[in-house]
Simulated scan of single mutants.
Amino acid sequence: MQGPESLSIVLFAGGFDRVHYALVMASAAAATNRKVTLFFTGRALAALLDETEPGVPGWHGLDAADDGRSPAERDGWFTANGVAGFEELLGACVMLNVTVMACEMGLRALGLPPGVALRPDVPVKTGGVVTFLNDAPKTGAIVFV
């Protein structure tokens, strides 16, 4: 039995471990020639904010990891133990042409201003749930994280 042709992942939770693992799944699926879309909403949107802007923590502002460590501490532990770090995984997703979407409603729900600076190194599409669902092939899988 063959798996789905595509993978669409909704990242709602803002916990570092959840966002990190969604990047693991997305990069692996893209590396196996599947069409992949990451739809960031809710607290997970912090991962797409441009941390070069003053006062914007970016992915470092995600919620603590499952073990209580800060995102930076957990990411450092991962890389020290041979696990791909956040930036490496996100870079792989970009290189493998994963579609990255930021939910317009989610940005408003977090109180972020229209046109908030998103990461310049990641081609981010903004759209809503309808845009996301129209992007997802009917033969694909949708995962909610």
Rank of each mutant, 00 (worst) to 15 (best):
T139H: 04
L62Q: 12
A80T: 08
A102V: 07
D66K: 08
R108V: 03
A136M: 09
M105K: 09
A102N: 05
D17C: 05
M95I: 10
L11C: 03
E88H: 10
V19I: 11
P113E: 01
G3P: 00
L48F: 00
L11G: 00
K138C: 00
T131S: 04
A72M: 11
A117W: 08
A28E: 08
G58Q: 03
S8D: 08
R74D: 04
D66M: 11
N33T: 01
D135H: 12
F16S: 02
E73Y: 13
P137R: 12
V145L: 14
V129Q: 06
A117Q: 00
G82A: 09
L96N: 10
E88A: 12
R43A: 03
E104Q: 15
P4G: 14
L45Y: 05
V100P: 00
R34Y: 03
S27Q: 11
F144N: 02
G61N: 05
V124R: 01
L49R: 14
D135G: 10
G14W: 15
R18E: 09
L89C: 13
M25T: 00
F86I: 00
A92G: 04
A44N: 04
K125I: 03
A28V: 02
L118I: 06
L112Q: 06
A80Y: 15
D63L: 15
G58H: 07
G14I: 15
V143L: 14
G140L: 01
E53I: 15
G128D: 08
M1C: 11
D63V: 15
M95L: 13
E5F: 08
G61D: 06
R43D: 10
F12N: 04
V143I: 05
A46K: 12
T52L: 07
G91T: 14
G85R: 14
A44I: 13
L107F: 02
L107A: 04
C103E: 15
L89I: 00
A65E: 14
G111N: 05
N81I: 04
P71D: 11
M101G: 10
P71L: 08
Q2P: 11
L107G: 07
W59I: 13
K125L: 13
R69S: 12
L89P: 15
K35E: 04
A46L: 13
K138F: 01
L90C: 07
Y21Q: 05
V56Q: 08
N81S: 06
L7T: 05
G61L: 07
A117I: 07
A136F: 07
R69N: 10
G127K: 01
A28L: 09
R108L: 15
L96F: 09
F12V: 07
A109Q: 09
G115Q: 04
L38Y: 02
G14Q: 13
G15D: 14
E51G: 08
G58E: 04
F86L: 12
S8Y: 10
C93F: 09
L48S: 03
F144T: 04
F132D: 12
G68P: 07
M101R: 01
T32V: 09
N97D: 11
R74V: 00
A13R: 15
E104A: 06
V10L: 14
R74A: 13
G61T: 15
